[in-house]
Structure formats: C-alpha cells, structure tokens
Design a protein around this nucleic acid. Structure first.
Lengths: 150, 150
DNA sequence: ATTAATGCAAACGGTTTGCACTACT
DNA sequence: AGTAGTGCAAACCGTTTGCATTAAT
C-alpha cells in the first residue's frame, strides 16, 4: 500500500517504520493513523473505533486494537487509564502525561510536566517510581464548582 | 432478619441504618458486610463477590452490586478506580484515600492524607477540586525496581 | 509465494438489567 | 399484606481470541 498521505510527523513515516520491522501498511491502519494524527492527548479504543468507522466503515474492533498494539510497540501511543476506568491511549509527541478529569462535566485536561514531576517527587522518598502517563486525577473543575455548589 | 453479629462499627449498625430508610437486612447483605468488615482499604466488585461466595455460595453478582450501591448511599463505601481500570470500592472509616499501585507486582498502598493534600494543592490554583478518594498513582515499587532493573 | 493483517464470529470479564419469586418488615 | 431484595438469565460494553481469507511485500 502507498505511503500515508502528507500527515505531520511522526505519523507520515509510520508505514515505513512498520515495513522496516517486517510489518505491513494497510488501508485500515491508514484510517487508524489518520484519526490518531487528528487526536490530541488521549482517546479510548472504543472512541477510536467509532471515528475510524466514519472514515472507513469496514474497520472492525480487532483491527483497531491490533493496530494500537503495533503503534504502541513503535512508541507512538501509550496506554493508560481514564477516570471512567476505561483503557485509554495517550497520543502525540508527548505521551508522557496524565489527566485531570472533571467528574461532573466529563471534560479532561492534560497534566503538565511540572505537576507530574511534583507528584512523582512526593513518592520518591518511598522509593516508588511514578509512571507519569498513568496519573489520573479526578475532581470538579472550576466551571462545575461555580455552576452547582452542592 | 437478626441483627448482624458483633462486628465492629460502623458495620454492626448497618442493618438498623438500612431499616431506618425502609430498606431491609438480609442474609446476603450480612455476607457482604461481613466480608467488607474484614477488608481494609479497597476491594473490587468481582473480588467481593468471590469472597462472599466462600461464605455463602448463594450470593450472586447482582446482589453484591446492589448491596454496594445501598452501602454507598449510607456512606460506608465509596467507589473509585484502580490501576487496572476496574471499578474499586474504598472501604472503612477512612474512605478518603487514594492508592499507590505497583505495575509490576500488583501490590497497593494507600496514599496518606498529607500526600493526597499535597496533590490536591497542586491543582487548587487552577480552580480544580481534587477528589482525594479517586487518586490512583501507578508505577514501580522499591522492591520491583531493585529486583529487575530493566 | 510468503505470511502479516483482516473480518468475522464467538468468547471473554465485569457489570447491569428485567422479571418472577422470596422473604423481611 | 405489602414491597424490598433476591436469583436467574439474558444483555451489556469494551476488549480479545481463533481461524479461514485477503492482500501487502
């Protein structure tokens, strides 16, 4: 299959990277990568599947999950856990981030490096090495606190 | 059904608390509460189910989950999320705690109040109110770091 | 031609539901 | 007697698997 269409790096070269490992570049993987390239931060497997289907109705769950596994081996995504308990994939150049999740409105924000480091530092004394990409902090965002003071 | 057998508070009075709300005290709920009273920290629904079955083989999933919902309304348990992504129930007088989870050996430790507060403080400036009982930090514990330096 | 990847369908695990039945109050 | 709670079975959701088929190399 042809090289993936003019996507920003690191996505443009995914096909080549896969081939270099004896793996293959397919129409379905192109669809998955296309969606991921337009995703900032994080996405669940189910969400990714749904969005891929809009692009290419033939994409099935197994393909999405197998492709995610392949991309994870390339270091292009990392899996972590969202507040809902669902598995989540961190996407983008900076996959090393956690999430701030509002319990009320469901919106999410990434946790910046400084704060992730601050959290990691808290547990360093215990000899515990924090995986920054797995940090999920749940609570109420400013807007929701203002909206309903219950 | 009879009052629950000499359990430490707050479990001993669960039956009365339920009845006061027009709800009922049953053999199955006694089994669930019995297990919870012997649980420190946290437990998943599935785990709780398994342990209840050892006590009373007739306990079925729906009963466990419905009972957990009832107990949550009484404030005796709170649900949060474990590192595996599974729903987890925080048990005990101090339900306000997060978890430190070792990715490698699977062991968990509670996060103390001071550290939970420190984490909450990090996001206070953003106007974000952290739910301390939902905090789960994943990484590698001291022992596993020592064991395999990969 | 080789063999990685796909599509399907079935199975998984944990959880939730509808409903007739049981048993607490 | 009234009705909350139960047990069952089926459905749910997201994810994973086996296997025959397709298609990238």
């Amino acid at each position: 299959m042809a090289r993936s269409a003019s996507l920003p790096e690191p996505w443009a070269s995914v096909g080549d990277q896969l081939r270099a490992r004896g793996q293959r570049w397919t129409r379905q993987r192109d669809a998955v990568v296309g969606v991921l390239s337009r995703t900032q931060g994080h996405i669940t497997g189910a969400e990714l599947l749904a969005r891929c289907r809009q692009v290419d109705a033939s994409v099935v769950p197994s393909t999405v999950y197998r492709t995610l596994a392949a991309l994870e081996e390339l270091g292009l995504v990392r899996h972590g856990h969202g507040a809902s308990g669902r598995e989540e994939f961190h996407v983008g150049a900076d996959t090393e981030h956690g999430h701030l999740h509002c319990d009320s409105c469901g919106r999410q924000w990434e946790i910046g490096k400084e704060k992730a480091d601050a959290i990691a530092a808290l547990f360093q004394a215990d000899g515990f090495q924090v995986d920054r990409s797995h940090v999920t902090i749940v609570g109420r965002c400013r807007d929701c606190l203002r909206a309903r003071k219950d």
